[in-house]
Simulated scan of single mutants.
Amino acid sequence: MMARSVRLFIITLLAAFVPILPSAGAAETPITLHVATRTVAPLVQKDNGRLTGFSIDLWNAVADRLGVRSDFAEMPDIDSLLASVHEGKADVGVAAISITADRDKTFDFSQPMLGAGLQILVRGKSDQGAPNPLQGFMRLLLSPVILVWLGIAAVLIVVPAHIIWFLERRAPGGIIPERGYFPGIFHALWWAAGTLATQADQMPRQWLARVVAVLWMFTGVIFVAYYTAQLTAALTVEQIQGDINGPDDLPGKRVATTLGSTAATFLKGQHARVQEFAAIDAAYRALLDGTADAVVFDAPVILYFAEHEGKGRVQTAGAVFRKEDYGIVFAEGSPLRKKVDEALLELRENGTYAQIYQKWFGAN
């Protein structure tokens, strides 16, 4: 802790004189900051053994503004990265670090450096294998669409059945042979169901019952046509989307993410069967191997994988949710934060931030 205090004191003095460093002469040796990071493309990744990525490029630009050097230390997961900063082993943490209220109680954060949020990743249709016809039929049979329409059909059968029973039970030669409610109502229910589904196999004898029967045949035609259209639409949507289409579909599913991430905390609250991995690459492998149903993680990371290594094999499901911001993390009370914030503002104003963003995420 003593060494950390001395280093931070030197940093504070150095940062105060950053504007005059260029004229101090080449003999001056800039201070070195210990930077904790972790690999999570495209924020941090390795290119021929050299760290690169959006967060690394942005931090290097900040370090140039401050006139300091960086000594990067790779951490296996976000918990190790934060612990390194908290224990003073690192002066700053740079990667894909979400700013949360809980973390803000223990750490200081820079101003947001990138808007993010959570995204769901599922296997692509071509990577899911041949569908099981029986499983698909049972899922459709028990789907909310079918249950709603069965309820509507039940109402449309019971109501006219009672009308026909009441009008036909005393008609000579009517379609209701028994005058009592039982079993006469069963004859009426059979007639109403048959008329709704196809057409009446026999017509009532009583004149008012015949009017009801004609109206009911038209109702049956409309019902069947509308039901067929709705069922076709539901099947089309299911073929396009799949089982997981948003956060509401995650409970009970096997969902992979990284250890200690905000995504893991969210998924536990959703009662998903969470699989936590040290690295996001392991979560991707679990998804592609079929041992996980989905991956939930930071949207920029998910989208990058879907457009590069996972292209054609995975696809996103639903929109970005639980929006968060990335920031640079410091130990609480660090004098570095103010200078880093000033440098980030300067990089936005002079266009450097836009150039770095466009390099890794495109014009949009």
Rank of each mutant, 00 (worst) to 15 (best):
E238Q: 10
A36N: 05
L21P: 00
P177M: 08
G49Q: 02
S84E: 11
L21D: 03
E87F: 13
L287T: 07
L81P: 04
G117E: 04
K323E: 15
L196C: 03
V40P: 01
T39K: 09
L167Y: 05
F277K: 10
A354C: 03
Q355L: 13
P172T: 10
G49T: 07
A41E: 08
A27D: 13
Q230S: 09
N132H: 09
A197Y: 12
D47W: 00
S70H: 04
T265L: 08
A272Y: 03
L21E: 06
P22L: 07
L141R: 13
G194K: 09
G93D: 06
I31S: 04
S261N: 04
G136S: 13
G246T: 06
G115N: 13
G129F: 05
G252D: 05
L43I: 00
I164F: 11
G129Y: 10
D71F: 08
A101T: 14
L14S: 15
A3G: 15
M203Y: 05
A101E: 14
L235C: 09
V62R: 04
P30F: 00
L231S: 02
Y226A: 13
Y326G: 01
D249S: 07
L208E: 03
T39Y: 02
A263M: 06
T37M: 05
L347C: 11
V314R: 00
R103V: 05
L51R: 11
F321Y: 12
L235Q: 11
D57A: 13
D249R: 01
Q241H: 09
A153P: 06
L8K: 07
N60C: 03
V122D: 03
Q270S: 13
P204H: 03
A229F: 10
M1T: 13
I78N: 07
V212C: 06
L141P: 00
